[in-house]
Write a protein that binds this DNA or RNA. Structure first.
Length: 624
DNA sequence: GCAAGGTC
């Protein structure tokens, strides 16, 4: 009998795609008992040495199999002081709804010589792989464990992954295990502490859960931080000089090199000197080609940011819609950090698929007729998924209105990536007037290229400048002083918040939208519309509770050395660095868990000791 | 009734 090999992917869609490639398209599908999504695919495949021709069962899990929780006697909120959760025993169990999936793996492992793990090649994927391994070993302790390393589901790539397996990376799996334990202990301890303490202080908090999480709190911190900057803003008056010239029937405005100053007398004096000089001298006339770069291949974070901005959908809605489009097979996997296309992907074929479209079909044809360019490469690669792109064309009549918007964006972005940059001719003119320098810039757009399909970018020709010659003198038509006021920053918008979270390592591409939704659900922030029509944006404004929490925690640690407020992203960043140390093998999981718990325990003890600060902040903001 | 991370 041929040897049997069990393959397990992270999700059903990957299991199916891999089975299709390995089997050459002919496989048998079997449902499993107790779960409607997971299927077993059976076929033969030659893995090469040392396995040879094998009969394969390809199946999947659905994300993590297990969850970590406190032992039963610690689950009740009154069962122990919240601080005890830093040490309380925890146990890892297969989630209730995943029991049939785990059982399927144990059963299939029983008759298998080897297990090939096909989870995503990222940290979480390594941990999920370890969960799968544990189940397989429980079914068959002698099973040999291998890991397929693949970063997309292109055919040749998948075949190579099957024939060149590697080992599971225990370090990465351990790093995730550490994160899971820390998030649980710290989240539960602080949540219980602050909920129980604050509920008693203010009537409106009576029935509320006031949660703390290492991601949701820094997210709240960003919103509050901006809010306070807006509130505390004091406008300042400034003055500047503007110079205007009328020539050849055109008006040219020259901008001051110093932009503006906050000293009126000084500006007046500078203008006087200009007027005394009477004539301005052209010191530079530069004509140079300018270009506006086509966008980078699309990542999740970018989809959420651009989507919020141009499609007027919040990031969670965008992700839901993108997932629906993915499940229906219209776009690629929407959770990716990668902004570079793998050479193995046949991009032109994907462009051709868009030919039938009424809006951008002709544009796609023009690309294939010679205008195609290889996309730019960004600097991110998660080694698991390609940038988000359309996989086939779909008629607009098949989509609801949100799906239409998101699909259109993904397609236009993809076609833009495969286009040439926009090209133009720029003119920079610099003049010396008295002691001061001024400049005027002109732009003529010569080739729109990607702008024709990527309607979200704007790049317009400016008014054309009249001719100037270097060294020539002219008398400006007008030279004035003008007054202005600095304006307050505006409240944080969702795309800005996602940008901040991304830059500070708060959450992952898949979870950022959830953290924002969480702080809305907890009533730490609310969303207010600003403006109307096309310029309408949604702004995030902290509630009184949100402000009170941040101010309270800032006060708790104020004046203490080395204690960083929980509302800031630094503690989370620190945790991230320690996880990297586990991955590098320089620290063990236990060391990191102990160290990080010590760090958070210190803040916890301060918080308990100075809980009055937190209570006072809540009274201050919520008792009126 | 707590977290964050996978995925449906």
């Amino acid at each position: 009998m041929a040897r049997k090999i069990l393959c397990v992917a992270e999700k059903p869609a990957i299991a199916r795609a891999v089975a299709t490639h390995l089997s050459g398209g002919s496989f048998q599908t079997h449902a499993i008992r107790g779960n409607q999504y997971v299927k077993n695919y059976e076929f033969d495949f030659n893995f090469g040495e040392p396995w040879g021709n094998c009969s394969v069962t390809m199946t999947s899990v659905i994300g993590h199999l297990t969850g970590l929780d406190f032992d039963r006697q610690y689950k009740g909120w009154m069962s122990c002081p919240p601080g005890a959760l830093f040490e309380a025993p925890v146990q890892e169990d297969v989630d209730k709804d995943k029991l049939p999936i785990a059982e399927n793996i144990r059963n299939q492992a029983r008759y298998s010589k080897a297990l090939f793990i096909w989870t995503d090649c990222d940290r979480e994927g390594e941990h999920i792989g370890a969960e799968v391994r544990n189940q397989a070993k429980a079914g068959n302790s002698r099973i040999e464990v291998k890991r397929a390393r693949f970063s997309n589901t292109e055919r040749a790539h998948v075949l190579r992954a099957a024939r060149e397996p590697v080992e599971l990376d225990e370090f990465q799996a351990n790093a995730v295990a550490a994160r899971i334990e820390l998030d649980l202990r710290i989240g539960a301890a602080f949540t219980r502490l602050q909920t129980l303490q604050l509920q008693a202080v203010v009537a409106v908090l009576k029935e509320k859960v006031i949660s703390y999480g290492s991601c949701q709190f820094p997210t709240l911190g960003f919103v509050v931080d901006r809010y306070l900057r807006v509130q505390n803003f004091k406008p300042e008056t400034f003055w500047g000089i503007k110079v205007m010239l009328q020539r050849e029937g055109k008006k040219v405005n020259f901008l001051w090199k110093r932009v503006h100053l906050f000293d009126r007398a000084a500006v007046t004096m500078m203008l006087e000197r200009c007027l005394i000089a009477k004539q301005a001298k052209v010191t530079e006339v530069n004509q140079k080609p300018k270009s506006k770069w086509r966008p980078l291949p699309l990542t999740t974070v970018d989809l959420q940011m651009m989507g919020s901005r141009f499609l007027r959908l919040d990031s969670q809605t965008i992700m839901k819609v993108a997932e629906a489009l993915y499940t229906k097979g219209y776009i690629s996997y929407p959770r990716t950090e990668t902004d570079q296309f793998d050479k193995a992907i046949d991009l032109k074929k994907l462009v051709e698929k868009q030919f039938p479209d009424g809006q951008w079909g002709q544009y796609a044809k023009d690309l294939i007729d010679g205008k195609f360019r290889t996309p730019r490469s960004g600097r991110h690669n998660d080694k698991a998924h390609p940038p988000i792109h359309p996989v086939c064309w779909v008629s607009p009549s098949q989509l609801n209105s949100n799906e239409k918007k998101v699909y259109e964006f993904v397609v236009r972005r993809f076609l833009a990536c495969c286009s040439d940059d926009a090209k133009g001719q720029g003119t920079d003119i610099e003049i010396q007037y008295g002691e001061e320098k001024f400049h005027a810039n002109g732009l003529i757009v010569l080739e729109r290229n990607y702008l024709d399909v990527y309607v979200y970018d704007k790049w317009e020709s400016s008014q054309q400048l009249p001719n100037f010659e270097r060294g020539e003198l002219f008398e400006p038509t007008e030279a004035n002083i003008y007054e202005g006021k600095t304006t307050a920053p505006s409240y944080l918008t969702e795309p800005e918040l996602i940008g901040l979270m991304d830059a500070n390592g708060i959450g992952t591409d898949a979870t950022m939208a959830e953290h924002i939704a969480k702080i809305k659900e907890r009533e730490y922030v609310v969303v207010h519309p600003r403006g109307s029509g096309r310029s309408k944006v949604e702004e995030l404004i902290p509630t009184r509770l949100g402000i009170a929490l941040v101010e309270g925690y800032d006060n708790v640690v104020a004046g203490l050395p080395n204690s960083i407020s929980l509302s800031k992203p630094f503690l989370r960043k620190e945790m991230e660095l320690r996880m990297l140390e586990i991955c590098a093998g320089s620290k063990t999981r236990q060391e990191v868990v102990q160290q990080s718990l010590d760090m958070y325990r210190e803040v916890f003890i301060h918080t308990q000791r100075r809980i009055e600060m937190l209570k006072a902040a809540c009274r201050k903001y919520l008792n009126e």
